[in-house]
């Protein structure tokens, strides 16, 4: 564990808490893409399959449970909780996210480090997470303005993988044979997809107005 990875995990945890705060307290998911949340639930479900078979640390297991629990409960809230579901923008959240799942699965079957069930699904979760934000970014452009909590959620979600890239650079220089191109490229693509969001998000801070 290094400071970059810890910062990344805390940023990721913060993004989840901001979204849960928004949905649970003000009972609103306005501007939030259910499709991105569903993709993230699949990402965690396929990435943490080894949660019961390989124990890394209490921290690791605890965080996996937090991410699994929060992603599935957010999907549940947005789908089935009456008050929250009413604020869900179904007409605008139309990105064909299932079209992302199959190519990621095919790619994982073609490009992976080991051809085992767990490894292929783990690799699939990396590819899927890289593109999981697309429905949310498309919804963002359609709804023009978004509230601060949603903006902060997306900012933190994009930032966490950026911090992980620093963690991988650190591990590359400190651990002799830490070379994982698949993880690195997927993480880089994921972070780059947020580039224009980050641009407008920082403009907002400079301009002091809502995220356009």
């Amino acid at each position: 564990m290094n400071i970059f990875r810890l910062a990344g995990d805390m940023t990721h945890l913060a993004s989840v808490l901001v979204l849960l705060l928004k949905i649970h307290t003000i009972k609103s998911c306005a501007g939030v893409s259910l499709r991105t949340q569903e993709l993230y639930a699949i990402v965690f479900a396929t990435r943490y399959l080894d949660i019961f078979t390989s124990f890394v640390s209490v921290y690791n297991t605890f965080m996996k449970l937090v991410f699994l629990g929060s992603s599935f409960s957010i999907v549940w809230y947005m789908r089935y909780h009456k008050a929250v579901h009413r604020t869900y923008d179904r007409e605008q959240d139309t990105f064909r996210h299932w079209f992302l799942v199959l190519p990621c699965l095919v790619l994982a079957l073609l490009i992976h480090e080991k051809f085992t069930f767990l490894e292929v699904l783990w690799t699939f979760s990396l590819y899927l997470e890289a593109v999981a934000i697309l429905p949310q970014l498309v919804l963002l452009q359609r709804t023009r303005n978004i509230d601060n909590l949603t903006g902060q959620y997306i900012f933190l979600l994009g930032g966490y993988r950026g911090l992980y890239i620093l963690n991988w650079i650190y591990r590359y220089f400190t651990e002799p044979h830490f070379v994982h191109w698949i993880t690195w490229i997927a993480g880089l693509v994921q972070t780059l997809l947020y580039a224009d969001f980050f641009y407008y998000y920082f403009l907002r801070f400079i301009g002091g107005r809502g995220v356009e």
Partner: peptide
């Protein structure tokens, strides 16, 4: 094992 693989990451 655990040290060189990103599997110890989230």
């Amino acid at each position: 094992k655990g040290s060189d693989s990103p599997k110890d990451e989230l």
